[in-house]
Amino acid sequence: MTLSVSEIATVRARHPEAVAEAAARRRRRPFLGERGRLMIVAADHPARGVLGAGDRSLAMANRADLLERLRLALSRPGVDGVLATADILDDLLLLGALDHRLAIGSMNRGGLAGAAFELDDRFTGHRAETLRRLGFDAGKLLLRIDYTDPGSLATLHATARAIDEMAERHLPVFVEPFLCHRVGGKVSVDLSAEAVATSIAIASGLGGTSAYTWLKVPVTADAEEMGRVMETSTLPAVLLGGDTGPDQDTTYERWRAALRLPTVHGLIAGRSLLYPADDDVARAVDTAVGLL
């Protein structure tokens, strides 16, 4: 029986085993379908203390609303799955929303936004063994590198070991790399072509094998630059669909152009689809699917 959002807390309190039971019942699908493309909705922001979307500072703090938006997004044709932390994936399991959809676990959320230790991004989420046990399909990790912050070395080391652990279990892992630096105490990412290419080169070389490593990369402003950036590695990649900003059409065209590149196999987008400016989740998701 599929639960309503209002019933989740009661089930969690009285029958915590229900999560594992729902995971065991989940009907799975191939990781990469016949079309060879992935359209993934991301919702792992809250666990890093990021609750805002657009001009709504606490948009993602309403869990019932977030889950309804995710259920709607996952119901749209062409959507392959969701990337989220354990609490959200557990909720979606209880709601019966993950059948025939990919479940991708977010692995490191320890680099809380604005914290002094933000770049020492500990693996506080899913572990490789947990993903295997629950029958989930892949993992994702964030790798931000600041050459002046020792915390980045700890994250690099932990990332390499996580890649090894995922490969041992034949589980794909999406690595999201950035070069960054602090401006006024706040971490700022460098999205220049040179910086993105450098971050890709670093991420591609981590671990004892890259056989199961995917890249999750931002789209540069210039289409020609993006082509050169993606020549840095032969690893399969998906695009990071960040905030579309006020000019959605221009952003979509940049995504469309990047999706034509030979190593790019899809798109992972979060708040831009779940909290679009016009609040029409279905239309935002359908537009993104159409770009594929």
Rank of each mutant, 00 (worst) to 15 (best):
D222E: 10
F31Q: 02
Y252E: 15
A158T: 02
T250E: 14
E118H: 09
V229E: 08
R169W: 08
Q248V: 15
L239C: 08
H265V: 00
F123K: 04
P150V: 07
G151A: 10
I8F: 14
V264S: 03
A103V: 00
H170Y: 04
S4Q: 13
L70H: 03
P177G: 05
L171G: 10
G114C: 11
S152P: 03
L93H: 10
A284V: 07
R132L: 14
A154H: 14
L240S: 11
P46N: 11
E118Y: 14
M166G: 06
V238Y: 04
I163R: 01
T232H: 00
V281Y: 12
G266N: 04
F31S: 02
G184D: 06
G242N: 09
L83S: 02
G184E: 06
A288D: 05
V229S: 05
G96S: 01
H45M: 01
V19L: 02
L292K: 06
D99H: 14
H265P: 00
V50C: 05
W214V: 01
L38S: 01
V82R: 09
G105C: 12
L240T: 06
L74V: 04
L142M: 13
T213E: 01
P262N: 05
L66R: 08
G110T: 06
R122E: 15
R28D: 06
R228A: 12
G135T: 04
M226K: 00
D146P: 00
L259M: 11
V19I: 15
R260C: 12
G96P: 00
A288W: 08
F174L: 15
R228L: 09
F136I: 01
A73R: 07
R109L: 13
L206W: 08
A277K: 12
L141F: 12
V289Y: 12
E118A: 09
M60Q: 15
L66V: 10
L66H: 01
P177R: 03
V11Y: 10
G139T: 05
K186Y: 04
T124S: 15
G114A: 11
D91T: 03
D90R: 06
A201E: 10
G105D: 13
G81M: 10
L38D: 03
A197W: 03
P150I: 07
P262K: 00
N62R: 13
A282P: 03
L259H: 02
E231Y: 00
L291N: 01
T2M: 15
G207T: 02
A201D: 05
I104G: 01
I268H: 01
L179V: 08
A154M: 09
S204G: 09
L89P: 04
P30N: 10
Y252A: 01
K140S: 11
R25E: 15
D146S: 02
L38W: 11
M166P: 03
S210E: 12
H100Y: 12
D190S: 02
L58E: 15
M230F: 09
P77Q: 08
F174M: 07
L215S: 05
I40S: 04
K216D: 06
